[in-house]
Design a protein around this nucleic acid. Structure first.
Lengths: 227, 227
DNA sequence: GCTAATTCCGAATATTATTCGCTTTTACGG
DNA sequence: CCGTAAAAGCGAATAATATTCGGAATTAGC
C-alpha cells in the first residue's frame, strides 16, 4: 500500500510533460488548401513581430495584415479576434519547447540534471526567439485577462512541470523531502523569468547565454543545500 | 584614496531610496479646488478597481467614469489618456511604499535585516492592496509598452534599491564580495514577484502572510551561504 | 456678493476591431 | 483537361470606444 501510494506519483513529471508537449492542436483551424497553410504561418510570424514591437493592445490589425501581405478581413478567416491570434503564438511555441525538452530529458540520469536542463533550455529558447519571448513573458504570462483556457494551460504547464520535477527529486532521495516543492518551484521559475524579462527589456545581462549557467548553478545550490 | 572610492558608494542605497520615496510629484496635475482634489482621488480609486477587474486594455472609460461618479470627458481634465490614468496609480503607491520602507529601514542594524524587511514589506503591501497589486504586477511591471519615464523609473527603483542593498552588504562584510549583486537581486526580486503573481492569480499560497517568512528565509540563505 | 479662474459635461469626431456579401481560387471526380 | 462545389480572399459597411471641443456650472478669493 505504501508502494502503491508512491507509484501514483512516480514519474508524474513525465506524464505532465508529455501532455504539455502535445496539447496545442485542439481548437485551431486547420486549413485544407496548401496555399492557406503557408499563409497562416506567414500570418503568425507577422503577428509575432508586430505584437512584440507594439504590444497586443496597441498593435493594429491593419499593420499585421500589411506585414503578412493579406487583407485585414482575411485574418478573421483564420482567427476570430486579435486576442485569439495573439494567444495562438505562445500556445504553439510552448508546445514545441516542451516537446524539445521531452526529447532530451529522458537521456539524463537524475532529476537535478533535468531541472538544470529545463531552466537552461527555457532561457536559450527565449534568446533564440526574442519576439516570441517578448510576447510571452512581457504580455501574456502574467496577464489576468487571459481566461482563454488553452493559453492558461500552456503557461501553467511550465509551473506544473517544475513542481513535479522537484517532487520527483525528493521522492528519489536526490534532495531533502522537507523541501517545499511549490516554494522551490517559485524561486526557480521566478528567478529565471525575471532574468529573461530584464534581458528582454534592457539587454542585461549583455550575454544571456553566458549568464545562465552561474544563475542556474546558484539556484540549484538551494536544493542541494536542503539537507 | 581607497577610502574615497568606497565613500562614493557608501549608503548609496539610502540615496536611491530617498529619491524613490519622493519622486511621484513631478508632472501630475495638482487641482486648485478642494472638491476637485477629492474627485481626483475618487477617480484613482475607481480606476484601480476597474483596471484590476478588467485589465487596462479592456477597461472602458465609461465604466471608470460611472464608478467614480463623473462624466467621461471629465476624466480627461485630469489625465490626458487612459494609459496615463493607469500609470498614475502605481507611481503614487510605489512612492508611498518606498516612503514606508524609508521610515523603518534606518532603525535596523544591518543590511540583511533590511533586505528581509524590504521583501516582506513588498508582499505585505500587495496583500493589503490587491487591486493595486494586480495592476502593478500583472499588467504594468513587465510591460514593454511602457516608455512613460515616470512609471519606468518607479518600477526600476525597486530593482535599484535591492541591488544597492546587496552591494552595501558586501561592502560592509555581511556577506561575500564575490556575490554578483545583479544575479542575487534577480533571484530575490524574481522569486518574490513570482510568488505574488501566483497569489494574485490563484490565491496560492492560501495564506500569503504565513508563506512569506519561510520564502524570504530560504532566499537569504543564498546570501548567507555565499562565503 | 462679484468675478475671474477652474471645473464639469454633452455632443461631436476619430480610430479601429469586427462583420457581411460577393469574388476569386483551389481541390478533385469525371 | 473540365466543371463545380468547397474553401479562401477581400473591399466596403458597421460598431464600439477613446478622445476632443465649446460652452455651462461651480468655486476661490477679494
Amino acid at each position: 500500500m505504501l508502494d502503491g501510494a508512491s507509484a501514483d506519483t512516480k514519474d508524474q513529471w513525465l506524464d505532465i510533460l508529455q501532455q504539455a508537449a502535445s496539447g496545442y492542436l485542439e481548437g485551431a483551424r486547420d486549413p485544407k488548401q496548401s496555399r492557406s497553410r503557408r499563409r497562416q504561418l506567414d500570418l503568425l510570424e507577422a503577428a509575432t513581430r508586430v505584437f512584440a514591437r507594439e504590444g497586443i493592445a496597441k498593435a493594429k490589425m491593419a499593420d499585421i495584415a500589411a506585414e503578412a501581405g493579406m487583407s485585414v478581413s482575411s485574418i478573421y478567416d483564420y482567427y476570430p479576434s486579435k486576442e485569439d491570434l495573439a494567444y495562438e503564438i505562445p500556445i504553439r511555441r510552448l508546445a514545441q519547447f516542451y516537446a524539445e525538452f521531452l526529447e532530451q530529458a529522458p537521456s539524463l540520469g537524475n532529476m537535478r540534471d533535468r531541472l538544470h536542463l529545463f531552466l537552461s533550455m527555457a532561457t536559450d529558447y527565449a534568446r533564440r526567439n526574442p519576439d516570441w519571448a517578448r510576447l510571452l513573458y512581457l504580455e501574456i504570462w502574467p496577464s489576468v485577462l487571459i481566461e482563454e483556457a488553452r493559453v492558461r494551460r500552456a503557461v501553467d504547464d511550465f509551473g506544473r512541470i517544475v513542481v513535479a520535477m522537484v517532487r520527483e527529486g525528493s521522492r528519489r532521495g536526490e534532495w531533502s523531502r522537507k523541501l517545499d516543492p511549490y516554494q522551490t518551484a517559485t524561486i526557480l521559475m521566478g528567478s529565471i523569468t525575471h532574468m529573461l524579462i530584464t534581458w528582454l527589456l534592457y539587454r542585461r545581462p549583455e550575454n544571456l547565454r553566458k549568464a545562465t549557467k552561474p544563475m542556474v548553478d546558484q539556484l540549484l545550490k538551494l536544493i542541494d543545500a536542503s539537507g
